[in-house]
Write a protein that binds this DNA or RNA. Structure first.
Length: 480
RNA sequence: GUCCCUAUCGUCUAGUCUGGCCUAGGACACCGCCCUUUCACGGCGGCGACACGAGUUCAAAUCUCGUUGGGGACGCCA
C-alpha cells in the first residue's frame, strides 16, 4: 500500500471552530494510527475573506489541542498558476470550456427560472457557441470563466463512513472551475492540491458530500483515480440546529478562555461520533491513536453536550498533579487580579495548598478563580439567602464575637488546633459545633459551600480570619 | 422546491455490516441513599431508548420498503 497522506484544509474566514477542530483531530489520529503524514493547507483563494489573523488563530488552536502537522501550511493563494495549468489541460481535452456569461446575466436567468418554479441549471449557452463566436469573444477579451463539462451518467464513490454514495449527473450542472479573474474555485483547487500533495484519504465534514460528487467528476476528467473519502458527521447544537455563535462557545479559543484543558476537549470531541467500544471514555492521545479507525465513525450527526465536556474536564483536573495544575491555574488567577508575580514567587507552597483544596470542586480552570476568590480577597458579598438564614439575629453576632475573641490565644494557627477551639466554644455556648461552623464559614468566605472550613481558616491565617469575623459580626448586628 | 445523508435512554454511545447470546450494556445529566461541618469527590441504587407502519424469517434493534422527524447541499464562497 502506498503512503497514507491526509490533509486538513481550513479556510481562514473564522476562528478554529469545534467542528473544524474535530475534523483536524480525526485526520491527525488517522495519520498517526497509520504512520502516515498529516498535511496542513490553508484554503485562502477567497482573498476578501481571508486574513493573517484568522490563519494564526487557527494554527494556534491546532497547536493548543496538542496536534501538529508534518507538512505545510501550504497556501492556495500562492499556487494560482498550478490551477491554471490543470484547467488548460481540461480545456485542451475538451473536458472543460470557456464561459462568457457574466455573473449578473446568470443571476438574472436563475431568478427567472426560479420565479417560474423551474429547476435552475446552467444552460450551456457558451458550450453551444460556434467556434467562430467563441473566437470572437476571446478576441474582444470578454471576461471568461472555465466550466467543467459534466457528462451524462451517474457518479459513484465509496465512502469509508457512509459506504456507497451515488448521484445522477443530471442533478449536477457544469461547475465553474476557474473564475474569470483566473483564480480557481474551491472544488477545483481542492482536487488539484489533493493530487499534487498525493493525498490518499480525504477526511472532512459530511457537508462536503455534495462537493465530492463534483470533485470525483473533476478527477475523472483529469484521468486521475480519486483518493479515498471519509465524510464525518456534523456536530449539532443542543436544539439540533447547526452549532453557532448563539449557542455559546464554539471556537477553540473560547474553550481555552473558559478554562478547559486541551486534552479534555480533544478527548470529548473525539468521542462525538466515534467510540472505542468496551465502554471506555477517558482516553489518552496515545490510546486514541491506537484505537481510532474511520470505519467505526458513526454516520449520524451528534449533539454537542457541554455538561459532559465539563464533567470530563473535571476528571482531567482531578487527575493532574498539583504543581502542574497550579501552573495552569495561575493565568486565570492573574486575570482576575487575585494574585501577582510576587505572590507566585514567594507563596508557591501556599498556592499549592489552595489548589489541593479546590481541585475536587472545580470543573474548569476558571472556576478556581471564581470559587476560590475569597482565598485572595476580602472583596466578596455574603450570599443573600444564607444571610437570611444565618446572619439574622443578635445571638448570631454574639456567637461570632465569642469565637473570634477565643482565637487570640492560639499561637499555632493550625486546623486541628482551630477545630479544637471551635468545639470548646460551641460547647460553652451550648450549641452544636455545626451551627458555629456554618456561621464562621459564611463570615469568612461569603458562601455556604466549599472546602473543609478549618483548612480554609488555616490557609487564611489568624489575623485575616479575625478581621473577617469581626466584620461579619458588625454586618450581622446591623442586619438583625 | 430538487438532490444527498441520517434515525437505540434528554445527550454521547455499545449492540446493526456477520438476524437468536438484548426481559438492550456503559457514560453525562437527573433523583435517592451512604460518606460528611457545608459544597464537592467517591461508593451504592433508581429513572430512562430500539421514531412509526408494513414486509422477509421459526426468530428482527439488527435485513427490505414506505412514512415521519432531524441534518446537509444546491455560488465565478470555502
Amino acid at each position: 500500500m502506498s503512503e497514507i497522506r491526509v490533509r486538513m484544509a481550513p479556510s481562514p474566514s473564522g476562528f478554529l471552530h469545534v467542528g473544524t477542530a474535530r475534523t483536524t483531530i480525526y485526520n491527525w489520529l488517522f495519520a498517526r494510527h497509520n504512520r502516515g503524514k498529516f498535511v496542513l493547507r490553508i484554503e485562502d483563494t477567497d482573498t476578501a475573506r481571508s486574513s493573517r489573523e484568522m490563519i494564526d488563530a487557527i494554527l494556534d488552536g491546532i497547536k493548543w489541542l496538542g496536534l501538529d502537522w508534518d507538512e505545510g501550511p501550504y497556501y492556495q493563494s500562492e499556487r494560482t498558476k498550478l490551477y491554471q495549468d490543470y484547467a488548460r489541460k481540461l480545456l485542451e481535452t475538451k473536458k472543460a470550456y470557456y464561459c462568457f456569461c457574466s455573473p449578473q446575466e446568470l443571476e438574472d436567468k436563475r431568478k427567472q427560472v426560479v420565479a417560474a418554479k423551474g429547476e435552475w441549471k446552467y444552460d450551456r449557452v457558451c458550450y453551444n457557441l460556434s467556434d467562430r463566436e467563441k473566437e470572437e469573444r476571446i478576441e474582444t477579451s470578454i471576461p471568461k470563466a472555465v466550466r467543467l463539462f459534466v457528462p451524462e451518467g451517474e457518479t459513484i464513490f465509496s465512502d469509508i463512513v457512509y459506504r456507497e454514495l451515488k448521484k445522477e449527473n443530471k442533478d449536477l450542472d457544469d461547475l465553474v472551475i476557474l473564475r474569470s479573474d483566473g483564480t480557481p474555485t474551491y472544488n477545483f483547487a481542492c482536487v488539484v492540491d489533493d493530487v499534487e500533495m498525493r493525498i490518499s484519504h480525504v477526511i472532512r465534514g459530511n457537508d462536503h458530500i455534495a462537493n465530492t460528487f463534483k470533485q470525483v467528476l473533476i478527477y475523472k476528467a483529469l484521468g486521475i483515480i480519486p483518493p479515498h473519502f471519509a465524510h464525518i458527521p456534523l456536530i449539532l447544537a443542543k436544539d439540533k440546529s447547526k452549532l453557532s455563535k448563539r449557542h455559546g462557545a464554539t471556537s477553540i479559543g473560547e474553550f481555552k478562555e473558559e478554562g478547559f484543558l486541551p486534552e479534555a476537549l480533544a478527548n470529548y470531541i473525539t468521542l462525538l461520533g466515534w467510540s472505542p467500544k468496551e465502554d471506555r471514555e477517558m482516553l489518552t492521545i496515545d490510546q486514541m491513536i491506537e484505537l481510532f479507525t474511520l470505519e467505526e465513525v458513526n454516520p449520524a450527526n451528534p449533539v454537542f453536550d457541554k455538561e459532559k465536556l465539563e464533567w470530563m474536564n473535571g476528571e482531567y483536573i482531578r487527575s493532574y498533579n498539583n504543581e502542574d495544575l497550579l501552573d495552569l491555574i495561575i493565568p486565570f488567577l492573574k486575570k482576575e487580579n487575585l494574585i501577582n508575580d510576587d505572590i507566585v514567587n514567594q507563596r508557591r507552597g501556599w498556592l499549592i495548598g489552595f489548589v489541593v483544596l479546590l481541585k475536587e470542586r472545580c470543573k474548569t480552570l476558571k472556576e478556581f478563580a471564581e470559587k476560590g476568590k475569597y482565598f485572595f480577597s476580602f472583596n466578596y458579598q455574603y450570599d443573600p439567602s444564607a444571610v437570611k438564614k444565618l446572619f439574622n439575629s443578635p445571638a448570631a453576632a454574639k456567637m461570632l464575637r465569642t469565637f473570634w475573641e477565643s482565637l487570640y490565644p492560639i499561637d499555632e494557627f493550625k486546623k486541628e488546633k482551630i477545630e479544637e477551639f471551635l468545639r470548646i466554644q460551641a460547647d460553652k455556648m451550648q450549641i452544636k459545633p455545626s451551627v458555629l461552623i456554618h456561621l464562621v464559614r459564611l463570615a469568612t468566605t461569603g458562601v455556604t459551600g466549599g472546602p473543609p472550613l478549618f483548612d480554609i481558616l488555616e490557609s487564611l491565617d489568624k489575623e485575616e480570619v479575625i478581621k473577617r469575623i469581626q466584620k461579619a459580626e458588625e454586618f450581622c448586628r446591623d442586619n438583625s
